[in-house]
Design a protein around this nucleic acid. Sequence first.
DNA 1: TTGTATGCGTTATCAA
DNA 2: TTGATAACGCATACAA
Lengths: 313, 313
Amino acid sequence: MLNRPDRVSPGTRERVERVMAELGFVRNESARQLRVGKSRTLAYVVLDAGNPFFTDVAAGIDDAADDADLSLFLCNSANRADREAAHLTLLEQQRVQGILITPVDPDAAALDQVARRGTPIVVVDRTRRLEDFCTVAVDDVLGGRLAVEHLVDRGHRRIAVVGGPTSIGQVQDRYAGARAAWTDAGLDPDDLVPLETDAMTVAEGRSAGERLAGLAARRRPTAAFCVNDLLALGLLQQSIGSGRSVPGDLAIVGYDDIEFAAAAAVPLTSVRQPRHQLGRTAASLVLDESTNPDHRHQQVTFTPELVARASTL
Amino acid sequence: MLNRPDRVSPGTRERVERVMAELGFVRNESARQLRVGKSRTLAYVVLDAGNPFFTDVAAGIDDAADDADLSLFLCNSANRADREAAHLTLLEQQRVQGILITPVDPDAAALDQVARRGTPIVVVDRTRRLEDFCTVAVDDVLGGRLAVEHLVDRGHRRIAVVGGPTSIGQVQDRYAGARAAWTDAGLDPDDLVPLETDAMTVAEGRSAGERLAGLAARRRPTAAFCVNDLLALGLLQQSIGSGRSVPGDLAIVGYDDIEFAAAAAVPLTSVRQPRHQLGRTAASLVLDESTNPDHRHQQVTFTPELVARASTL
DNA sequence: TTGTATGCGTTATCAA
DNA sequence: TTGATAACGCATACAA
């Protein structure tokens, strides 16, 4: 409880500690921080605390924070720019050691302003147009490619790509990878059917399933690549619920490989991202930026990996 | 950005605001808090940030915090007492307005100490022996009863109860409710088979499934009540994966009704808890304790509800 | 309407 | 080894 117990004689020390306990003394962190000038916390502003992918990333950050003797505070923006901004403002005012963020919009000016004023920021699972930030992401073009190559290997010649909104860079990248793999295989671009969703949730996955079922049989894809697992689980549920078999009538590939993907009753083929590693790396970058005077920004990109399961045979 | 923009003449005000922007002025929250004496944050120390049940509770807290113009910080104890203690210490030193917590051990002395020193604490989704805290929970005995009554209604006469460790009060309560319903129906206590697990995770659910499969056919239960949905999903996965049909060979009831329960390819019957409401109520209690001088501690108990789906026919 | 002085609780520095 | 003093940045109370 004392800062330097060794600087004080055992007697006094014991006496002081007794009185502290008696009086219920608790150090005032605001005063300490005001004097010392630095905080003992990191924050992760997350896009959707209910998505297991992000909580796994957070677990990785938490591990690294633990090692550095810092506490991690998780802030949920719930995909809303106003909430994200409010969190950023408070965190900046708190002078946290560093902010990790999966932003609603990675190119938003607010991020630059915070960074310019001196709070280290690392963007997680997104990339920016400019390379003026540390960034930790996964190669989404490759991920999209892996998914579609796998489906082509399995013999599918007409497939849906489910995801959106397409304003999200990640969705664009996965689409782009999918399209590249498709044309590389010499297939007709018209047979790669985009199915846009309003969000990446289970409910939107179900609704995509209904739209899919509404297509005429000869125009209906035999497989779907969903740009995340929540969509895939929703699609899976809707398909089975309406009597179609997976993968018989519809093969499904998801993305993220969250725990519930493997645990689905038709285990989901999915593109796995090293989410724990993503978090750990992001944390170490933000710590470097906050402590190392000649820190250089880096863009770290990890490689995704396809995990084949029953939903694609 | 100014505290009382109206107290200053428009000219000065405009000039000041320009300079603030120019210089990148950001208020120092530590200094502000030191002077004013109160913080603008709530914290929720959660047992398992990866369990969707808790993130839904957190969303409820977040809503209430938003309304009160406070920020919510989520801290993950990951079921480890040492991490929980570290978070509590820092939060107390930060003088947060209030702490919401789903503790590793609701009767741990550390909680009492923090509360006694003046930080409002509300215990979420757990109950305590003593009523010296605000507490928000769901009637777990009733929940266990609902689950088993449902299975008895469906004609099951030998069922497993899957959960653990049994040191968790909640697990005990749900067991107790299950047992009460069972004997009330005039059935033989020996036919209610406890299957203890080391944790409440998907992996443990799978392992319970293997143990179940290992039983001789005539001793094997025809249904299982799992004390949470993660266990139920694991059990479901293992059962289907090894060729048993659900609910044909094994009916399954889960607990919590997380989103993934309904989205499982065999949609899971589950005992629903009003998790959003749980969070909202907890937040309003902690706010009352922090602002209302004649606050009285309350123990709020919500009523669970059974949601029947395909996993029980 | 604007300016000035004080103290919040801590740590660091310097003197004893 | 111990004690005294100053400063961190802000909000408040009061004076101008």
